[in-house]
């Protein structure tokens, strides 16, 4: 498994039905494939994270496909509606098929 350095921000508690924001940040160069090595003049091959997904208690609630136009160290924020206590699992997949994961727990009250 790839060692992706990722930071996520999920509230610890939420009321049932509340829509809360999730913020994620992962460290990655996101090489576009357009840059050239200044010494050799050769193109640096494309190497990006092309897929991000968020599962809430095993069910996919949000996902995103990324193209080279996404900045280095991709930031992503989105919303999830609180249903049940459980976990939010995040995964990032890169061009080499490596997957980085991270998860967070959430308590749903009421």
């Amino acid at each position: 498994m790839a060692n992706f350095k990722a930071r996520i921000k999920v509230p610890k508690k939420a009321k049932k039905g509340e829509v809360f924001q999730v913020k994620t940040l992962v460290t990655h160069k996101m090489e576009t494939g357009l840059r050239k090595n200044k010494k050799t003049g050769k193109k640096i091959p494309r190497f990006i994270i092309n897929k991000f997904a968020c599962n809430y208690n095993g069910k996919e609630v949000f996902s995103s496909n990324w193209h080279p136009a996404i900045s280095a160290n991709p930031y992503m924020s989105f919303y999830v509606r609180a249903e049940k206590s459980g976990s939010l699992d995040f995964s990032w997949t890169d061009d080499k098929g490596q997957v980085g994961t991270k998860s967070a727990k959430i308590m749903v009250t009421g």
């Binding site: 069910k59 136009a69 900045s71 991709p74 924020s77 989105f78 919303y79 999830v80």
Partner: peptide, 30 residues
């Protein structure tokens, strides 16, 4: 999409009813 980047696609986002809000933020290259 970005209409004058080397390739027009930037990203696709897929939502579900469990998203609560069809809103997302990210950072892109231009």
């Amino acid at each position: 999409f970005a209409d004058e980047n080397p390739s027009p696609e930037v990203a696709s986002f897929h939502f579900s009813p469990a998203s609560g809000k069809a809103q997302a933020n990210t950072r892109m290259r231009m």
